[in-house]
Design a protein around this nucleic acid. Structure first.
Lengths: 229, 229
DNA sequence: TAGGAAGATATTGCCTGTATATTGCTGCTC
DNA sequence: GAGCAGCAATATACAGGCAATATCTTCCTA
């Protein structure tokens, strides 16, 4: 059914993938920026990225616009695009907001999580503790991401979900930059586990307190990177 | 200084305004959707809006994309665009998040507002009480918007600011739809005034509590529109 | 040599044409 | 009459080009 359009394919464009090129471009760019593959401060242009990623300018432009709203890049009209610098003070302001949303998410997840989600959380924090013991940072990051996805989904609030998604990229990038100097993975795993346990038991107040302790740790981690503690 | 491009001007495009067409299109559309000039459920298309507002398809497309992220419209690929319906349950979930951010903003504003901002807040809530007494809903809405702008600016947190901005459009649209049935303007004015007063005095805990009471009112207002209280 | 004007260069803003996807309609078949 | 195949209509997705504009460079002038 319907002839292939393979003749027009770019390196990785996949028309039958069901995902728009804009979406693909966004994911690719977000990944490269968050993992520091494109370092902070890099100046790029739509044309450069379009050539580099093998997309047209339109998907790249829309992806960049979205990244700009997430503060991962800054678009300067008629000048170019700068990958945002990472700044400790900015990070602390971000955590001010994240603390509130994280607490809300924990509380609502404790109220609303399904049985399957509670079990899933349990498995994830188990994996985190194992990854921390084995000092496997890649696995830890992947599990942290899963943990966030599950709790946010369990909280059943699409607004909190998108607000958190917005903050995650910037938070993860900061972590990528500094975790080698200052991260205490076993402690982080334990704090995650405490939140997860409270959620699993449906203990709302305990979940809130545990969430605050977790963000306390993240905040201390951030401060430690500049010795402001 | 380059010849005029007046020959190509649309009805209201103003190249020398310093504001991009995308920005203009966004503001125009947001205004029309929030004020219900374009009613919920309306099906539109890029082409229709481009013709109607006198912009090209590109600015309209980018504006719609932003509105979709704010959940004011839903874009269905290859199908069309629907102006989102207004839903009480959605509104209550929105308020769950807004309560947390509003409280944070009030607390930080109490800590960080400048002398000028504290005076400005005072003037605004004075005006609100006058507008409520005179039953002037237009003035009340304008002042409410100003109140939010000032407190958010005083909180000195760009992340909280953009999160709030995201929620404001949906909140205001709900208010536009229902204020005639269920709003108690004098009470709303008084509750705003209590938050403002606590901020002006720098009383953080009082500001948090007052903020919660304000959101309690907004939540009750929302519930009252469907008699769920 | 310092300062400034004018052109060169690079980049985004915006437009418009073409490709693609979804849906509803129409007519054929059983 | 019901159901399905195929076609037409219409919408967004994407590409690529031109225009506007911000900066950089060069060269002229005092």
């Amino acid at each position: 059914m319907a002839r292939r359009t393979a003749a027009r394919n770019r390196r990785r464009a996949r028309p039958e993938s069901g995902e728009s090129l804009t979406e693909q471009a966004y994911r690719a760019l977000e990944e490269q920026i968050v993992t520091l593959e494109i370092p902070p401060g890099t100046v790029v242009s739509e044309a450069i990225l379009a050539a580099r990623l093998g997309f047209g300018r339109t998907p790249i432009r829309e992806a960049l616009w979205r990244l700009a709203r997430e503060r991962l890049v800054t678009i300067i009209p008629h000048r170019g695009i700068i990958v945002s610098e990472i700044n400790i003070k900015t990070q602390l302001r971000l955590l001010e907001l994240r603390r509130e949303i994280e607490r809300l998410v924990a509380a609502q997840a404790a109220k609303r999580a399904s049985e399957a989600e509670r079990k899933q959380l349990d498995a994830i924090v188990g994996g985190m503790e194992a990854a921390a013991a084995a000092n496997d940072d890649r696995a830890f990051m992947r599990l942290d991401r899963e943990y966030n996805e599950v709790t946010v989904a369990a909280a059943r609030n699409e607004f909190a979900a998108s607000a958190m998604a917005l903050l995650q990229g910037l938070s993860r990038r900061f972590w990528y930059l500094h975790y080698k100097e200052a991260a205490d993975m076993p402690l982080a795993a334990r704090l995650h586990a405490e939140v997860a346990r409270a959620i699993a038991r449906g203990e709302v107040e305990a979940a809130k307190k545990a969430s605050d302790r977790l963000v306390d740790y993240i905040e201390n981690f951030a401060r430690a990177t500049v010795g402001l503690d």
